[in-house]
Amino acid sequence: MAVKRRKRPQTGKSQPPLEAISGFVLDESGAYQKLLNDRVRLGVLSSLAVSRVLTFRQLRDLLGVTDGNLSTHARKLEEAGFVRCEKSFDGRIPKTEYSITPSGQTALKRYLKHMEALINATSG
């Protein structure tokens, strides 16, 4: 039986890591940077910053990742307290909904500021 393969987004593993620059250190432990260095996690957080709630299926389709891949990355974001996960039933069908937490919004804003600062610092 043919297995349906989804196009995987770049994880950025081959790319150089973003460095903290003076005045824009992400946090003492570098947790934000480590967590958001992955494209899938960055995509999940960015998508949830726009939409109040997205289901697992919506996120999977929007980001073009596999179920297992999304599940792993979403769990990491949930453990870090950046996203909230609610499981319920729509009739007999299980439904998983994700939403962004205030600390997730702060993390994304700080990450965006950090990247803008990086671009400004390295240009010219």
Binding site: L42, G43, S46, S47, T122
Partner: peptide, 15 residues
């Protein structure tokens, strides 16, 4: 570094 940061910003925008 600048390319990587610009790529990340573009990815966020597209998401």
């Amino acid at each position: 570094l600048r390319d990587r940061a610009a790529e990340d910003l573009a990815y966020i925008r597209s998401a």
